[in-house]
Simulated scan of single mutants.
Amino acid sequence: MLLPAPTSAIPTNIITGFLGTGKTSLIKQLLSLKPKDERWAILVNEFGEVGIDGAFFKGRPEDNIYIREVPGGCMCCTSGLPMQIALNELISYAKPHRLLIEPTGVGHPKEVLAALQQPHYQDVFDILATLTLVDARAIAQTRYRENLIYQEQLSIADRIIATKTDLYEGDEVDHLKNYLAEQGLANTPFSMLDSPLADLSILAGTSDSVLDEDQALSDKPEHKHAHEHKHDHDKSGSLVDDLQHALQQTGRVTIENAAQGFASQGWIFNGNKIFDFTQAMNLLSVIEVDRLKAALITEKGIFGFDKVDDVLSCIKLDESPDSRLEIIDADASRISTAVNELESTLFT
């Protein structure tokens, strides 16, 4: 069925923030407030290669929610081709009344914004406020304070939002505000997400950033991929075919990614593999990595696992054609240890 296209430019928000700041959780809240007669499109970019975030959104075309994932941090590749292809396909199919974009937590949001501001998109997108989520507790850690991507995510914000406020124990917000002042961001609107959203006003306001694409792309550190099959960004369809073929032949695929001082390792398992729910909960609770996400088919149903700050959460998922798990960390030795633990227990 052909959908009627919106008659004006699509209101578009970028929702950025470092790993584990709650971007997906905020988008889920926003989706719960979506007017029933509106079609919303969500473009999600993950640092990992296997693509898990889409499974955490309860949205289907019949609910007027359309989700497209760009795995592997590729939304910020030099050519921007993976993002443009995914974005164009999503807009063409969904014809949305609103677009939300979630870049990877270790990616460059300036490049995403610059891509949206290209002349051929001028009449397509109405670029509204860029929201940057931040966990104020992270300011105490040098690896965040001095991280250039972390600083870029804050500098591009039209609104900075402190999340996970229920976990603050002291003067974290004061330290965050002092840090923002040091970065020249004292006048950037700041708020705290300390209660469920009541409406969509958080998305209001226009973007103040106007970027030149060449400037946004300059001096960008190179990232690299390593996995069992050739990864050619200009032949993403072939990559998907290769992965599906390997999945059918071997029952599982392992994919790695490394960039910006972080590394990831992810697995995709054939939907016929049934995981032990209790074993998964016990093991994933004790694995030590910066970030862990999984969508697993178990004997008790399909569940999503999300671990950040050493806290594992688990939710029931509606559906998933296969099982996927991804770990991310800045320390290669912790990745190696986690891989050994998974391979010797959960994956056997």
Rank of each mutant, 00 (worst) to 15 (best):
V112A: 07
V112R: 09
V112Q: 05
V112H: 06
L113F: 02
L113R: 02
A114N: 10
A114E: 10
A114C: 12
A115V: 08
A115S: 12
A115M: 12
L116Q: 00
L116N: 01
L116K: 01
Q117R: 12
Q118S: 10
Q118C: 06
H120P: 02
H120T: 12
Y121W: 13
D123C: 07
D123R: 14
V124F: 07
V124R: 13
I127S: 01
I127M: 01
A129I: 00
T130N: 04
T130V: 12
L131R: 04
L131C: 03
L131W: 01
L131T: 03
T132P: 03
T132F: 05
V134H: 01
R137M: 03
A138T: 11
I139W: 01
I139D: 00
I139H: 01
A140P: 04
Q141K: 14
Q141D: 07
Q141L: 12
Q141A: 11
T142N: 07
R143Q: 04
Y144N: 01
Y144K: 05
R145I: 01
R145A: 08
E146C: 03
E146Q: 05
E146V: 02
E146N: 06
E146R: 05
N147M: 05
L148H: 13
I149D: 05
I149A: 04
I149F: 10
I149Q: 08
I149Y: 07
Q151F: 05
Q151Y: 06
Q151K: 15
I156A: 02
I156W: 00
A157K: 03
A157H: 03
D158K: 03
D158Q: 04
D158Y: 01
R159P: 00
R159D: 00
R159I: 00
I160C: 00
I160L: 03
A162T: 05
A162Q: 02
T163I: 07
T163M: 02
K164S: 04
K164Q: 07
T165F: 05
T165N: 08
T165G: 09
D166L: 05
D166V: 09
D166R: 13
L167E: 08
Y168S: 05
E169V: 13
E169C: 13
E169M: 13
E169T: 15
D171A: 14
D171E: 14
E172I: 07
D174G: 11
K177P: 00
N178K: 14
Y179N: 11
A181R: 09
A181P: 02
E182A: 14
Q183M: 15
G184T: 14
L185V: 12
A186N: 14
T188A: 00
S191G: 15
S191A: 15
M192G: 07
L193R: 11
D194S: 15
S195I: 09
P196H: 11
P196V: 09
P196D: 05
D199K: 14
D199V: 14
L200S: 10
L200F: 07
S201D: 08
S201P: 05
S201Y: 06
S201M: 09
I202P: 11
L203I: 13
A204L: 10
A204F: 09
A204G: 10
A204K: 09
G205K: 09
G205Y: 08
G205T: 09
S207C: 15
S209H: 10
L211Y: 03
L211P: 02
E213M: 12
D214Y: 11
Q215T: 15
D219M: 09
P221R: 04
P221S: 02
E222C: 11
E222R: 12
H223E: 13
